[in-house]
Design a protein around this nucleic acid. Sequence first.
DNA 1: CGATCATACAACCATATGGTTGTACTGTGC
DNA 2: GCACAGTACAACCATATGGTTGTATGATCG
Lengths: 110, 110
Amino acid sequence: MATPDFDRVFGALADQTRRDIVRRAIDGEEGVAELADHYPMSFAAVQKHVAILERAGLVTKQRIGRRKVVRTNLQGLNAARRLLDRYEDLWRDRIDRMTTFIADTKETTQ
Amino acid sequence: MATPDFDRVFGALADQTRRDIVRRAIDGEEGVAELADHYPMSFAAVQKHVAILERAGLVTKQRIGRRKVVRTNLQGLNAARRLLDRYEDLWRDRIDRMTTFIADTKETTQ
DNA sequence: CGATCATACAACCATATGGTTGTACTGTGC
DNA sequence: GCACAGTACAACCATATGGTTGTATGATCG
């Protein structure tokens, strides 16, 4: 799997409409036009949002009959989650280093 | 804690420079000018990036001497992580419903 | 094949974004 | 109090973004 483009992933998630599309597309039952019915904007606008999500790897489209059903891609979301997890790891590392430093300081100054 | 503005949080994370600032600011030792030295852009540009991260609740600034030290705020990052976790939960719920449906179908059609 | 439903995409517009330079404010140290 | 380090912010520019309408392509049904 190619390394995800985090600019695109987080950029795609930085819009309420697109996050809502991601949520709806978890069920993976609606086409672009059906999704568009939920939002107060044109079909073309929603189609653009879906395209942005698709380029970010957050959803996929599958042709079913005359529709293209939009499905969210959990792997894309997980890529973002793992990056945030990594920050958490770095945070813990820092706490560990501080704890070690304090322990060393105690030893050497006493 | 106020509900986070996910547009701002994800928007702030949708930039490589800002993600790198978040990573560096985990150590919480550098002021804005020191952070700026790491990047091939003006001090003002970095200062703007920090301001965007601050408005998104991803970092805080604390005056220490004549500097303002930038520290990443783990709570902000965790708000984003929890939203992504929620998508994962919805995904599982869907799988559960599908499994139940299949089980029910088996029972009623046999 | 012809009509049409569903999707794709181009052109356009207003506003947001990411960068610049320049100026002003705020603490620190002498 | 002055000089200056460090930060903040305004004005400006180029490009990206989110929306629109209009047109073209693709698959299905009669």
